[in-house]
Computed example of a mutant assay.
Amino acid sequence: MTTIAPQGLHHVTAIASAPQKNVDFYTRILGLRLIKRTVNFDAPDSWHLYYGDEKGTPSSILTFFPWPDVPRGRQGAGMTSATAFSVPGTSISWWHDRLKALHVDVDAPVTRDAEEVLTLRDPDGMVLDLVAADGDLRSGWDGVASIPSEHAVRGLHSVTMSERLLDPTADMLTDLLGMGSTTEQAGRSRFSMGGGDAGALVDLTGGARERGYQAGGTVHHVAFRAPDLETMTLWQRQLVEAGVDVTEILDRQYFKSIYFREPGGVLFEIATDTPGFDIDEPLLELGRSLKLPPWLEPNREQIARSLPAITLPDLSADPS
């Protein structure tokens, strides 16, 4: 039996277009904290923006590569088709009213698998779900962007992946990644990590006919939690032994990570919980300035000139 057993989602990384629109939406509209302004380490002429709760706790984090000229992507097989956040159980109607008032593209609430779900789309068309989760005791980042603490986003809830065939991906999730299969209804299968709480869930839908196109408004990869580097090193070895094409361990400054693809094509990452986002700036100043890893510091001036300007919004102001 495998010892690979992620305890939940670590983060989701997606592709956006205009960085300022991205910052405004996720901080002013959804009330997430911009916890890190850095660059794509593999392409340092572009931003990598991190959002989350106050500390950037694993399972609260959504990150973006904003590429201003990127075309709009297309959903389909081999794609993460929705990223869900957890909100308090009584908050769905409040969020629906707020988003409608702010002219966000939002659907009417629905009940899915006994959960109340509100589906919306960000400025690039990325699909987001807000899921009512009474049992989620995480605090999120309370009292910002005109959002009362009792309605604040708590963190990631789940991701939904769209596949042509369910079984190969389901087998990897259960047999190799140690997830449990919990529910299956209406063409949707749910898999859980750890205790199966919000932030530790993966949903699969099958039957997608056309391959998706990864570009603006789509998810780039989904990351799962490893507690530390020692555990990740063990998991990497086991993935290799199972015949998975997995990368070497990469230094992402705020965590170490490995990457591989599931059979349907979605890019997976396993990321360590440590060292965290306060290693290069104080907690109170997270996200206020450009941070670079040591190996890019010699090129700071050139990198800074290449990046589109970003203005941090005044979160005390009403976004309307």
Rank of each mutant, 00 (worst) to 15 (best):
T119D: 02
L201S: 02
H157D: 14
E269H: 05
L128N: 05
I249M: 13
V12N: 06
A170P: 04
P275T: 06
Y213H: 13
M179I: 07
L118A: 09
P313Q: 02
K256M: 14
G135L: 08
T183A: 12
T111G: 01
L9C: 07
V131N: 08
W95E: 05
E230Y: 03
G265H: 11
P44M: 09
T80P: 06
R28I: 01
P313F: 00
R72G: 05
S158R: 14
G194I: 11
P71N: 07
L130C: 10
D122M: 07
T272E: 10
K291I: 09
I279M: 12
E285Y: 02
M193Q: 14
Y213W: 12
G187Y: 11
T174D: 02
H151S: 07
L290A: 04
L30W: 02
I147V: 15
L201P: 00
S91M: 07
F255T: 07
L49I: 01
L267K: 12
Q238V: 03
D97Y: 05
L312C: 00
D171E: 14
M1L: 13
V39G: 02
P294Y: 04
L156I: 09
G187W: 10
I92S: 08
W94L: 06
G155I: 10
L296I: 10
V127M: 13
S17L: 02
W94M: 07
G216H: 12
P109E: 09
T38C: 02
L234A: 12
L9G: 08
D105Q: 14
Y51D: 01
E281K: 04
F85T: 08
P294W: 02
T233R: 12
D45G: 12
H151T: 04
H220P: 04
I92V: 15
S59N: 15
D251H: 10
W141M: 05
Q214H: 03
R209G: 09
A198N: 09
R33K: 15
A114P: 00
D113L: 15
P66L: 00
G76T: 06
A101I: 02
S91N: 05
H48C: 05
W141Y: 15
R72A: 15
D245F: 04
S316H: 11
V39L: 03
A170M: 06
Y51F: 15
E301S: 14
F85C: 07
W95A: 09
V39K: 00
R72S: 15
Y50S: 03
A223S: 15
P294A: 14
V159N: 11
P123G: 11
E116D: 14
F191R: 04
V222T: 15
D42K: 05
A16D: 05
E301I: 03
L137Q: 12
D24C: 00
T160Y: 02
Q7C: 10
V70L: 12
R164H: 14
T233Y: 01
Q185T: 14
T218D: 10
K55H: 08
